[in-house]
Nucleic acid binder design. Structure first.
Length: 211
DNA sequence: CGCGGGATTTGCT
DNA sequence: GCAAATCCCGCGG
């Protein structure tokens, strides 16, 4: 399956893209190797949605959200973690789809190294933590949350915020999962817009984030 | 220029 | 269940 083209991102609105991205594969190839995983959980953030970072106006932090569809928006949250979003909607309109969970498909060992490395270089109190990427439980733990998958995929805010998903070594392939049931529900961890049904995930998938 | 809140994750209670 | 991590940036004075 080929890299999804610019046209894919431009041809659908944000809510539709949040659903269409389920089953597609996020791929990152760099000097460390290739890592990839199927998108199994997303959330949509619309321009008229109080939970959206671009709800008020364009600022330094959210500038990438106002770029063309197919741009990557990476932001830092809670002092430590990064989350990745696929920018959607027309240029100048701040909308995006948060990728919340992946089912790992390629480079599973490398994902484990990156996660364990993050423990070592992160908080001292996490230094004894290890993920066993050869076990089913370990693999389930690699990318089942927005902060986790960003580490496992080797995505860096400085490097990848505002980068394009249609050129370069970080991109999305067309659907590799078909014929699944989709669950629509409310988004996670929000204080505003918490009642909007903008979260989507693949029914029964074992790699969904918690809650 | 300082204050505070945030689309999270983790280990310990 | 809860607090900690201790950053980035938007906002108010």
């Amino acid at each position: 399956m080929e890299k999804l083209p610019l046209d894919f991102y431009q041809s659908h609105d944000t809510l539709r893209l949040a659903q269409l991205l389920l089953g597609c594969e996020l791929v990152h190839e760099n000097l460390e190797g290739i890592t990839a995983g199927v998108i199994v959980e997303t959330e949509a953030y619309l321009t008229d949605d109080p939970a959206c970072h671009a709800y008020r106006r364009q600022t330094t932090r959210n500038a990438a959200m106002f770029g063309p569809a197919g741009t990557l928006y990476v932001y830092q949250i809670y002092n430590h973690y990064n989350c990745i979003n696929v920018v959607t909607g027309p240029e100048g309109v701040g909308e995006a789809v948060l990728i919340r969970a992946l089912e790992p498909t390629e480079g599973i060992e490398l994902m484990g190294f990156r996660r364990n490395d993050a423990f070592k270089t992160g908080f001292e109190r996490y230094r004894n933590n290890t993920i066993d990427s050869s076990s089913a439980n370990g693999q389930r733990n690699l990318c089942n949350g927005p902060g986790k998958l960003t580490i496992a995929m080797g995505i860096d805010r400085q490097k990848h915020n505002s980068s394009s998903l249609t050129t370069g070594e970080l991109f999305i392939r067309g659907p590799v999962f078909h014929d699944f049931d989709m669950v629509t529900t409310t988004r996670i961890g929000l204080t505003r817009g918490a009642d909007l049904p903008y979260r989507f995930y693949i029914s029964g998938n074992r790699y969904i984030s918690k809650k």
